[in-house]
């Protein structure tokens, strides 16, 4: 079945909410408005306002409420209108959700999904275009997932909802309309398992979320130029499936990491460190990173384009690690 990323998320939540009445969706405009990006289309009609809870604009309040509800045995899905607003609730996710299990010596748990779109769309300005996954990945006690395709989005969201931990599930506005095959029937995808999205032997590219699509486009073009790229999507950013990445690097000897987030202390720096530690002797060239530029996102289109990784930059990085520039 060919469906959009948005519909995939909708199906995942719908199927899980039908299975388990303890699951509820809470956030701004998730009910009668059907979600700011229409992800929860038809939900309030099917599940009622008790389980599809429209909130006021109070991210710290409703994220904290969801954490409390999780401590008391419910399984909330918090929709953040965008991840940028998650900053307002960061105290709740970092100081409470991530720590309650540990601080209580395992007495309490917080089964919770916090989901919404991260990264830039088009010209939304500095406050609405951020890729904050590295912030969340830094915090012990959280799992972080950022699927790129409808198939992965559905399978991973279902797993996230069934998980017993607080999970940050990062979507992307520019992915909601993209289509892909999700097959028929129910399935889940295990958290923490990467997927080789394209097999190649010359260079490995690690890319996730929107950047996966960019990496695949670049790989197509490079193939025509005689460079066969292996593209790996970690899908889960934490815990990350490093063995799959390392195995690929051992085969290709070259690695390019693509991420939209800021370069300094970005996720790619961590991946590079892990690969250097595990496979230094296999590397034929220094690892290259293609990242967002270290600036607040500008509004103007040419400036915005300059701040976000694009295909030429990915291709350039691949050629650099191949010594073909």
């Amino acid at each position: 079945m060919l469906i959009s990323y948005r519909e995939a998320l909708n199906q995942a939540m719908r199927e899980e909410m039908r299975r388990n009445s303890r699951i509820f969706l809470i956030g701004e405009e998730v009910g009668y408005y059907q979600g700011a990006f229409k992800v929860s289309k038809g939900f309030v009609e099917e599940f009622g306002p008790q389980r599809v809870v429209d909130t006021p604009i109070t991210e710290a309040g409703f994220t904290g409420l969801a954490i409390g509800a999780a401590m008391a045995g419910l399984h909330p899905i918090v929709e953040l209108m965008t991840m940028n607003f998650g900053i307002v609730a960061l105290d709740q996710s970092v100081n409470n959700a991530a720590k309650i299990r540990y601080m209580s010596g395992g007495q309490l748990s917080v089964p919770l999904v916090i989901r919404g779109p991260g990264s830039a769309a088009h010209q939304l300005g500095a406050q609405h275009s951020q890729s904050l996954e590295a912030w969340f990945c830094h915090v012990p006690g959280l799992k972080v997932i950022a699927p790129a395709t409808p198939h992965d989005a559905k399978g991973l969201l279902k797993s996230a909802i069934r998980d017993k931990n607080p999970i940050i599930f990062i979507e992307a506005q520019l992915l909601y309309g993209t289509k892909g095959d999700v097959g028929d029937g129910e399935y889940t995808i295990p958290i923490g398992v990467a997927e080789v999205k394209r097999v190649g032997h010359d260079v490995t590219i690690v890319a996730y979320s929107k950047m996966l699509l960019l990496a695949l486009e670049a790989a197509d073009q490079l193939s025509r130029e005689g460079i066969e790229v292996e593209v790996i999507d970690p899908r889960t950013l934490k815990p990350m499936d490093l063995p799959t990445i390392v195995a690929s690097v051992k085969k290709t000897g070259r690695l390019v990491i693509v991420e939209e987030g800021w370069r300094f202390c970005g996720l790619g720096a961590q991946v590079a460190e892990s690969v250097y530690t595990a496979a230094f002797d296999y590397l034929d060239a220094p690892i290259q990173r293609v990242t967002g530029e270290d600036v607040p996102m500008p509004y103007s289109r040419p400036l915005e384009d300059a701040a976000i990784p694009d295909k030429p930059r990915v291709i350039d990085a691949v050629k650099t690690v191949c010594g073909r520039r």
Partner: peptide, 17 residues
């Protein structure tokens, strides 16, 4: 102040059930 929203959540859960 950070635990006060948690209390509303515990109460939300009891009311929900």
């Amino acid at each position: 102040g950070g635990h006060i929203p948690l209390a509303t959540g515990l109460a939300f859960a009891t009311k929900y059930q």
